[in-house]
């Protein structure tokens, strides 16, 4: 099956699931959630100023989507619809959070909050695509570090032990890697724009 055919098939499956949800089938909504939940959380993650907002916003997005499913226009992109719901919720949450929670945040979190707004939903979706492509380019030795930190959830000390380097080396290298990924994503987006 070609990539185009596969996407077409997925789209068809998705549309039939949406139809079932619109007819009141909650289990179909579960399947629909499974299709998008990872990418939706990743888009939110790229923009959420504090980590615990990621799952909260994803949760709210799905609840909102279910309650307004009749308003969704079949034939259009369901994921794009989800993203815009998430975006609005996240924006509102950031505003509310900065008003109500600012005093409870650590200084560093507070400063990160202050620089959080200023992007668009389209920007963040493209950023995610860029990040996935940039990840493919990471050399295997460094990819191993990323796998250990993010896939295997190893602590810094465990990683250091396994690669026989100091914990400081692991922290510095991962920090540089994230910077390189960010630069790579921005380069990609600038190229696309050009």
């Amino acid at each position: 099956m070609s990539e185009g055919e596969r996407k077409g098939r997925m789209m068809m499956d998705e549309q039939s699931l949406i139809q079932k949800v619109q007819e009141g089938n909650l289990e179909a909504f579960g399947s629909l959630m499974d299709v998008h939940v990872r990418r939706l959380r990743a888009v939110i993650a790229l923009n959420a100023p504090v980590p615990h907002l990621i799952d909260e916003i994803a949760h709210e997005t799905y609840v909102f989507a279910y309650n307004h499913i009749q308003e969704f226009q079949r034939g259009t992109s369901f994921f794009a619809w989800l993203k815009s719901i998430a975006w609005n919720l996240l924006r509102a949450e950031i505003q509310r959070f900065s008003r109500e929670q600012a005093n409870q945040l650590k200084y560093a979190e507070k400063r990160v909050f202050e620089v959080a707004p200023g992007r668009t939903i389209e920007h963040s979706a493209k950023e995610l695509d860029g990040l996935e492509k940039c990840l493919e380019r990471v050399p295997p030795r460094l990819k191993q570090l990323i796998q250990m930190r993010y896939h295997l959830s190893f602590s810094t000390e465990e990683i250091a032990d396994r690669v026989d380097q100091s914990a400081a080396w692991v922290r510095t290298t991962l920090c540089r890697l994230r910077r390189q990924l960010k630069d790579c994503v921005q380069d990609k987006m600038a190229t696309e724009k050009a």
């Binding site: 980590p51 995610l128 996935e132 993010y150 910077r179 990924l181």
Partner: peptide
Amino acid sequence: VRELSDQQNIEQALKVLL
């Protein structure tokens, strides 16, 4: 501050993706 914000977003996204 901007650097920390960028680092945090990439960190979060990698955690979700991987």
